[in-house]
Design a binder for these strands. Structure first.
Length: 202
DNA sequence: CTAGTGATCCGCT
DNA sequence: GCGGATCACTAGA
């Protein structure tokens, strides 16, 4: 069978956000040494009613319109923080929401921040990811290739990642756009994917 | 497993 | 004022 999306071997934040969102699955993100493997992402773009950038630049979404490869952090429902990576060229307004991570580094710090032992729930959701990694508004606009962030590709020789896609979660506009990506079969997803959306071979 | 609900803030209309 | 890229919790199938 053929595959609906090309899965690039190298990460390029100038690429469209849905390409970056796909490529990020399986990569490792740490903040000050705390984090793990990215297992779930969502893409948002400028011409996308569900995106914070849809209405054009504002004070809140300014980082989304800044240079790619930086971080956009916003407050969700007045309670949580959510972590995004900026994509496309400067001024475009595209990003990828980091929705779930398989915890591997700094487990005890994550457990302490989350007040929770259960590994499966430490980073299973965008608010949980930010809390576990200690991400808040202070990081808005920071570059991903500078401390305390470390983003690296899967270890050489690691098993190929099988990525599946489906509708994004928690939105009401453009809810049918299949820009949610996740590692097939991961137990660390914020929610399971419905069957039948495998995109890349493993 | 799914569905409903309260918490709690700020950007925007 | 409104409502959201959420979470934790409860109740019920």
């Amino acid at each position: 069978m053929s595959h609906a999306l090309h899965r690039p071997s190298k990460l390029d934040f100038n690429a469209p956000s849905e390409v970056v969102a796909n490529a990020l699955i399986g990569m490792t993100l740490t903040v000050d040494g705390v984090g793990g493997r990215i297992v779930e992402t969502e893409a948002y773009d400028r011409d996308d009613p569900a995106s914070h950038s849809f209405g054009g630049p504002t004070l809140r979404n300014a980082a989304m319109f800044g240079p790619p490869g930086r971080v956009y952090v916003y407050r969700s429902y007045g309670i949580h923080w959510c972590l995004n990576f900026v994509c496309r060229e400067e001024g475009h307004g595209a990003g990828v929401l980091i929705r779930a991570i398989e915890p591997t580094d700094g487990l005890e710090r994550m457990r302490h921040r989350r007040g929770l032992d259960d590994l499966r729930l430490l980073c299973a959701g965008p608010g949980r990811v930010a809390q576990a990694l200690g991400v808040d508004a202070r990081f808005n606009g920071h570059a991903l290739d500078a401390p305390p962030f470390v983003l690296r590709d899967a270890a050489h020789g690691g098993a190929a990642v099988v990525v599946e896609a489906g509708p994004r979660i928690g939105i009401t506009k453009a809810a049918d756009v299949p820009w949610r990506f996740g590692e097939k079969g991961s137990r660390f997803l914020s929610k399971p994917f419905r069957a039948g959306a495998v995109l890349s071979p493993g």
